[in-house]
């Protein structure tokens, strides 16, 4: 197990390397000059063109692309992601403020979609081809087909505007003192909006996975022993049906982070997605690159976590 983990962690290194190469390639395509991107624009204004030219040479900007990539990577490894042109602050600082909010939102969505998806998927599988199953299947298909931002608008319209139950956006009520419960209240609608798409897919996977396990012989054995049905399902079927679902959970993460961009925009939720949208509008390439790099790294490590959960849940897997 520990050997497997070690190998899995080592495998992340070439992936991370690939991520930075791709990130830099896009960066190199963008118009503009890295000197202006790496230095605080306030300081830059006081510099003469000669100093800037010297700096370009000192930084090796007339060198070939791979060399420039290596220089950039060295800075990134030291934690220098450059300066945000538009926020006039280091990229790492700008990102740090948004990333926590986004992780909160994605976690909320992941929780909601996992609980909802598992529960509804199991209900579907226990009464296959019944009216309830068809209704839930329709609900799942609608989730996959529903554009997240449109669903978010519908939620705001119905829950916030018509019923007046929950806030229309933001992360806290300005008039109230900051509190955890207020934050959670602001996470409910965005969380649901982001969760629905994943939940639809998860319901389908849970349903087919359950149906497959329900048809296995050891389930018949368990029933023949005289176990009550809830024990058969709860202890024997569910556990094994859960395994493929864990893998799916890990694979959903990139699309959750992608979807968060739209949901944060609709709810005016100050996360990394909203920052990226603003950065795109302002053509703030250093900030964009930093954001892409950080989310990709975050996803890589979350996938590692999903793999570990899988190894932990399935004792048959020893990975060697």
């Amino acid at each position: 197990m520990s050997q497997y983990l070690l190998r899995r962690i080592l495998l992340i290194i070439p992936l991370l390397f690939g991520v930075t190469v791709m990130n830099y390639t896009i960066y190199a395509l963008a118009p503009g000059d890295p000197v202006s991107a790496m230095i605080d624009p306030m300081e830059q204004r006081q510099m003469t063109p000669e100093t800037l030219k010297e700096m370009r040479e000192a930084l090796g900007l007339n060198k070939p692309l791979p060399v420039r990539y290596a220089l950039w990577l060295k800075e990134v490894l030291r934690g220098n992601l450059g300066y945000s042109i538009w926020r006039i602050r280091p990229v790492s600082e700008v990102i740090r403020t948004g990333i926590g909010n986004t992780i909160g939102l994605v976690t909320m969505a992941l929780l909601l979609s996992t609980i909802g998806g598992l529960l509804l998927g199991i209900i579907s599988a226990l009464k296959p081809y019944s009216a309830l199953d068809y209704a839930l299947t329709g609900f799942a298909f609608a989730g996959v087909a529903m554009p997240g931002f449109f669903f978010a608008l519908v939620l705001i319209y119905l829950v916030s505007l018509r019923l007046g139950l929950l806030p229309t956006g933001g992360i806290m009520t300005p008039e109230l003192p900051p509190s955890v419960s207020d934050r959670l209240v602001h996470l409910i609608l965005p969380g649901i909006a982001l969760a629905y798409e994943s939940m639809g897919g998860l319901m389908r996977y849970t349903r087919s996975s359950m149906l497959e396990v329900l048809g296995l012989e050891y389930v018949t054995t368990a029933r023949a022993k005289g176990l009550p049905e809830w024990l058969v399902v709860g202890r024997h079927v569910f556990r094994n049906a859960l395994l493929p679902v864990i893998t799916i959970l890990g694979l959903r993460l990139p699309s959750l982070f992608g979807g968060a961009v739209l949901i944060e925009t609709v709810f005016n939720f100050p996360g990394i997605g909203l920052t990226m949208v603003d950065a795109t509008k302002q053509r703030d390439y250093p900030l964009l690159m930093g954001g892409v790099l950080i989310t990709a790294t975050l996803i890589l490590f979350s996938n590692l976590l999903a793999d570990m959960a899988y190894a932990w849940a399935d004792p048959r897997i020893r990975y060697d």
């Binding site: 992936l15 991520v19 791709m22 896009i26 395509l29 963008a30 118009p31 990139p254 699309s255 959750l256 982070f257 992608g258 979807g259 961009v261 739209l262 997605g273 990226m276 949208v277 795109t280 053509r283 390439y285 964009l288 690159m289 954001g291 892409v292 989310t295 990709a296 996803i299 890589l300 996938n303």
Partner: peptide, 14 residues
């Protein structure tokens, strides 16, 4: 590994 929409958004921005 890249979140699709963010990557597409970035490339379109460029």
């Amino acid at each position: 590994t890249f979140p699709g929409l963010i990557l597409i958004m970035t490339v379109v921005a460029v």
